[in-house]
Design a protein around this nucleic acid. Structure first.
Length: 487
RNA sequence: GAGCCGUUAGCUCAGUAGGUAGAGCAACUGCCUUUUAAGCAGUGGGCCGCAGGUUCGAAUCCUGCACGGCUCACCA
């Protein structure tokens, strides 16, 4: 970090202090932002502007300076955008101009005041009559034209990425908008937003390896949650009939363009609904988001054209597998396991696991337009309600978009006896070496014993949804500080 | 965890038959009162990711390591 430019700027800092100027002053209140000036006055002619006598004040980071000797142009960037400032000796005085040239660097935070005018090239510009150095920056900005490209630096020093790459900032602003829209959508449907524990004694509600931690005062092992599911359903037992949570979840697994160890999930539960109702709800929600964010139900994602026009396709896992691998393989457990083995897939001797694994590779990965995949086997769905048509199947679906799982939903199992037996089976799997099998959650079973109304619930991967809506091909592009190894 | 690729100035990037390290931006010194990737003249700035090896000589060839990216595996 010690380099020529850093040293030069530190010297300026010392000199400013010796002149009695606070290089980290906080005595300037900007009354305007770039965007409001541009949208409010950008269309006015030079004549109209010159008849205005209003003085505007704004503050932001100096991102460009073009020095002409007795005058100079600069661009200042605030939370809404950029605006040009013009400093002219005749207006501001020789001493102030000299001060600017000597002490104000690219990257500094500056407050400016002045009237508006238009340059010859038609750009709305603040004719600066007064400026105030608010914060000295000790490091140079990244390259003004190419921005910050180095992916590692972009993630490690995200602030520089945000300063110099406007499209990056745009993605995160969109992320914020999407989450807000989701909340509005859910609130309109009478759902209550809640928060449930992240530190769990039992990490349940999904098939995943948890992070472990320890509570010193209680002398107790704890896990970071892998899903909020079991807590939310306790709330349904408690009479919060429509409930949702948007929050961080942690899974101790690999990192990739699709996976970050901590990610954001939305889970929702609705009493008296079925998984088919949730297909409708999710379709409505995602189409609403696409319309608001993309302005269309047809948009590009990478090389793909995604068509979200309703109604979305619904395909049955067993039926579609029957077409690809044939009835004889599907119905003969031995042949099915051989098929899974030949594809290098794990199945732990479970029919359902083999079925879903094979499905994902052969069919799921190729589903680009939104598709509901339903008919999940019971042995991979320990919290889902058994189908009334087929005892080996549950009332569960997953939503695939762009070949990826975006949501998982089912009618909830609310029979406590059945639930306990399912947990028991998961324990057996765990003993046989399936690290991702569920733990027994007696307390949850007790909650069900008090009666959970029939309900359906869904989980939606928010990061992946944001990726889709912002055309981001890596999850790291939608998470401010993705997990990286220490430098 | 495996394979492939990358790491050179603050930033973006060049740099091959191994022969003392380059450009643009940024910085510094001048000139320039409507520019916008401003322009002109000049100057400074490098453990070429780290550690070994080969060689008279390594940014360049070899090995190991670190970090990152992509693909695959596990998963959402």
């Amino acid at each position: 970090m010690e380099n020529e430019q850093f040293e030069q700027r530190k010297e300026k800092l010392d000199e400013l202090r010796s002149l009695g100027v606070n290089p980290f002053a906080n005595n300037f209140k900007p009354e305007h932002v770039a965007r409001e000036l541009i949208s409010g006055y950008g269309e006015m002619s030079e004549e109209e502007l010159s008849s205005l006598e209003d003085v505007f004040s704004l503050a932001g980071r100096v991102v460009a300076v073009r020095d002409f000797g007795k005058s100079l142009f600069m661009h200042i960037s605030d939370r809404t955008g950029r605006i040009q400032g013009y400093i002219k000796k005749d207006v501001i005085g020789e001493d102030e101009l000299k001060f600017f040239k000597k002490f104000v660097d690219l990257g500094d935070i500056l407050g400016i005041k002045g009237t508006l005018f238009k340059t010859r090239t038609g750009e709305l510009t603040v004719n600066v009559s007064e400026f105030s150095l608010l914060t000295k920056s000790l490091h140079p900005l990244p390259e003004k034209w190419h921005g910050l490209k180095d992916v590692e630096l972009r993630y490690r020093q995200r602030y520089l990425d945000l300063i110099s790459n406007p499209e990056v900032k745009e993605i995160f602003l969109t992320r914020s908008r999407v989450v807000k829209l989701i909340r509005e959508f859910m609130d309109q449907r009478d759902y209550v937003e809640v928060e449930t524990p992240i530190l769990n004694q039992i990490a349940g509600g999904a098939a995943a390896k948890p992070f472990e931690t320890f509570h010193n005062a209680l002398s107790m092992d704890l896990y970071l949650r892998i899903a909020p599911e079991l807590f939310l359903k306790r709330l349904v037992v408690g009479g919060i009939e429509r409930v949702y949570e948007i929050g961080r979840t942690f899974r101790n697994e690999g990192i990739s363009t699709q996976h970050n160890p901590e990610f954001t999930i939305m889970e929702l539960y609705e009493a008296y609904a079925t998984y088919e109702d949730l297909m409708e709800l999710i379709e409505e929600l995602l189409c609403y988001l696409a319309t608001e964010i993309k302005g269309s139900l047809n948009f590009e994602y990478g090389d793909l054209n995604i068509d979200m026009t309703r109604p979305w396709k619904r395909i049955n896992i067993l039926n579609s597998l029957r077409e690809t691998i044939g009835e004889e393989v599907l119905s003969d457990e031995k042949k099915l396991f051989e098929k899974a083995d030949s594809m290098g897939l794990e199945h732990h001797g479970m029919w359902g696991k083999a079925v879903t694994e094979i499905f994902e590779i052969l069919i799921g990965d190729h589903l680009m337009d939104p598709t509901f995949v339903y008919g999940f086997p019971l042995d991979v769905s320990p919290l889902a309600r058994t189908s009334e048509q087929d005892p080996k199947i549950t009332d569960r679906f997953e939503l695939y978009i762009a070949g990826r799982e975006m949501a998982n939903a089912f009618s909830e199992l609310n029979d406590p006896i059945d639930q306990k037996e399912r947990f028991q089976k998961q324990l057996e799997l765990k003993e046989r070496g399936d690290e991702e099998a569920h733990q027994m959650d007696e307390d949850y079973v007790t909650a069900l014993e008090h009666g959970m109304p029939p309900a359906a619930g869904a989980g939606i991967g928010i990061d992946r949804l944001i990726m889709l809506l912002t055309n981001s091909l890596s999850i790291r592009e939608v998470i401010f500080f993705p997990h990286l190894r220490p430098e």
